[in-house]
Amino acid sequence: MANAHAHYYVPESSRWPILATISIFVMFYGGALLLNHHASGPMTLGAGFLGLVIVLFGWFGDVIRESEGGRYGNWEDVSFRMGMMWFIFSEVMFFAAFFGALFYSRVLSVEWLSGAGAKAATHQFLWPQFLADWPLLKLPQDYGFQIAKDVVPAWGVPAVNTAILLTSGATVTWAHWGLKANKRGHLILGLALTVALGAFFVYLQAEEYHHAYTDLGLTLNSGIYGATFFLLTGFHGFHVTMGTIMLAVILFRSMKGHFKPEHHFAFEAVAWYWHFVDVVWIGLFIFVYWI
């Protein structure tokens, strides 16, 4: 093992984990009440969320103080790296479930509904007029759904967003070069550009959703295409938002003089996360928008 120093830093007892649990519990409880149409739902959800924000400040605050106080050497750093790496892998598998749903419905179940393979009877007895198509706008059953007029074309805003995210991946790497060369201004400029690009991506995505809902009639209720489209791009957009907030925290810390050229795990963790949302977007652009 790479023992930079003999003692692994084991933090003393911490109240943050249990407070985090309680906050999330209150959020889930409030969310469930809200979905069940109880009047107390929104307030409870909001209280839990507020609690969680406070806990995150406290918990990360402790970790940052310990880090800046020199408590973490290479040995602790490796634990953090492994933690982040496998957390990102778990996120990849979360997206895999939704990509799986996209491929399954596109390749198998929509085709089966129009009688492909051994499914002639399914077609005959359920919706004999149904024709398989992708993107699926005309649904097997024509009532009870919001029928979309069209889908969002790939070579408009989504292509611009692809360029934005790819550029932001480059700017965050450029910022990393600045950090490693101990050029503070270079680091801060790189990060600020990345945050701005991230925020611009989220703005364009919100505009696109507005357009889809108001002009195209493409909603969550537009059958399997709308469902996969909004859940995939929605969870991705949520991750970009989180990533942008994380980048902003790192930018703020950089301005306060945190991080050293040889010791900056938090920066790298956020950069890895940012590259991960970038890669997921490439998958979305190809499989949801383009082909």
Partner: peptide, 9 residues
């Protein structure tokens, strides 16, 4: 959404 609803594909 209609992930598991055949009427929506």
């Amino acid at each position: 959404t209609s992930f598991f609803n055949a009427a929506g594909g």
